[in-house]
C-alpha cells in the first residue's frame, strides 16, 4: 500500500519531467551565447527524472500521522469540492459582476456552506468587510477594482 503511493506519485512526476524535458529541447538556441536559455531547464528536467525514478523505488518514510492525513472523510471531500466550486464561480464572474457583489455573496455563502448559522452576523460581516476593503482600495488608494454592474 505504502509503496504504491510513492510509485504512483513517482510515475506522475516522471511524466511531468518528460513533458518538461520535451519542451526544454524545443527552446530556440542562439549563437555566441555560452550558456543558452535551454541549459538550466534541461538540467532540471533530467534531475527531476532521476529523482522521480528514485522515488518510485524508494521506501516510504511517512509517519502514521502523515498517513492519517490522506484519509479524508467523504463529508470533508464534499466540503472541499464545494469551496473549490465557489472559488471557481467567484473567479469566473469576478470582472463581470464586480468586486463588491461577488465578494459579499462569496463570503456570505461560503460561511453558510461551511456551517455558520448566525445569519445576521454573517450578513453583517459579508457586507462590511468587502465594502470597507473596496473603499480603501478605490477611494483612499485610488486603485481600481472591477466595479462590475454597480455604478460606483
Amino acid at each position: 500500500m505504502v509503496q504504491r503511493v510513492n510509485r504512483k506519485i513517482g510515475l506522475i512526476l516522471t511524466l511531468l519531467s518528460i513533458g518538461y524535458l520535451y519542451m526544454s529541447y524545443q527552446l530556440p538556441t542562439y549563437l555566441y551565447i555560452p550558456l543558452d536559455a535551454d541549459a538550466v531547464p534541461k538540467t532540471l528536467g533530467w534531475v527531476l527524472l532521476v529523482l522521480s525514478i528514485a522515488l518510485i523505488f524508494s521506501k516510504d518514510s511517512d509517519s502514521e500521522e502523515q498517513k492519517a492525513k490522506r484519509q479524508i472523510p467523504k463529508t470533508d471531500v464534499k466540503a472541499l469540492l464545494g469551496v473549490g466550486a465557489l472559488l471557481l464561480i467567484y473567479i469566473i464572474l469576478f470582472e463581470t459582476l464586480g468586486f463588491i457583489i461577488m465578494t459579499v455573496l462569496f463570503v456570505y455563502f461560503c460561511s453558510w456552506f461551511l456551517g455558520y448559522k448566525n445569519h445576521s452576523v454573517n450578513a453583517f460581516v459579508s457586507i462590511v468587510f468587502p465594502v470597507a476593503l473596496y473603499s480603501i482600495f478605490v477611494f483612499m488608494l485610488q486603485i481600481k477594482l472591477p466595479q462590475g454592474i454597480l455604478p460606483f
Binding site: L87, Y90, T103, S111, V121, L145
Partner: peptide
C-alpha cells in the same frame, strides 16, 4: 472568529491580494 467565517475571510484576502498584484483574473 468562528472557523467558517474565518475561512471565507482568508479566502477573500488572498483573492484580493493576488488580484491587486497585476489586476489580472
Amino acid at each position: 472568529i468562528p472557523r467558517p467565517l474565518l475561512i471565507s475571510l482568508v479566502l477573500m484576502f488572498s483573492l484580493i491580494g493576488v488580484y491587486a498584484i497585476s489586476f489580472s483574473v
